[in-house]
Simulated assay, not measured.
Amino acid sequence: LLVLGALALRVAPRLNALALGEAAAAHVGIDVERLRWQCIGMVALLSALAVAWCGSIGFIGLMAPHLARQLVGADQRRVLPNAMLAGALLLVVADSFARTLAVPAEIPVGVFSALIGAPWFLVLLRGAVRRMGSA
Results as ranks from 00 to 15, higher is better:
105 A>F: 10
2 L>E: 13
133 G>C: 11
125 L>R: 09
133 G>E: 05
123 V>C: 00
56 S>Q: 10
2 L>Y: 10
79 V>F: 01
50 A>Q: 11
62 L>Q: 00
34 R>M: 05
24 A>H: 14
19 A>F: 10
127 G>V: 04
38 Q>G: 01
39 C>H: 08
107 I>L: 10
80 L>H: 12
92 V>Y: 11
74 A>K: 01
35 L>Y: 04
113 S>T: 15
24 A>Q: 15
42 M>E: 05
10 R>P: 01
5 G>W: 03
56 S>K: 05
45 L>C: 11
18 L>N: 02
127 G>W: 06
110 G>A: 02
115 L>D: 12
22 E>M: 07
37 W>T: 01
131 R>C: 08
112 F>H: 12
61 G>D: 10
105 A>V: 13
16 N>M: 08
68 A>F: 08
107 I>Q: 12
82 N>S: 12
41 G>N: 07
90 L>W: 09
130 R>Q: 11
88 A>D: 14
5 G>H: 03
74 A>W: 10
81 P>I: 01
91 L>V: 14
115 L>T: 11
43 V>Y: 06
39 C>I: 03
116 I>Q: 13
83 A>I: 15
111 V>T: 14
134 S>P: 08
11 V>R: 01
120 W>S: 12
2 L>C: 06
114 A>F: 01
133 G>F: 05
3 V>P: 11
48 A>G: 09
48 A>W: 07
67 L>H: 10
22 E>K: 04
26 A>H: 15
32 V>A: 04
48 A>N: 04
90 L>P: 10
115 L>P: 11
21 G>M: 05
79 V>Y: 00
66 H>G: 00
42 M>A: 08
46 L>S: 07
127 G>F: 13
123 V>L: 03
53 W>C: 04
38 Q>W: 08
43 V>S: 12
41 G>S: 07
25 A>N: 11
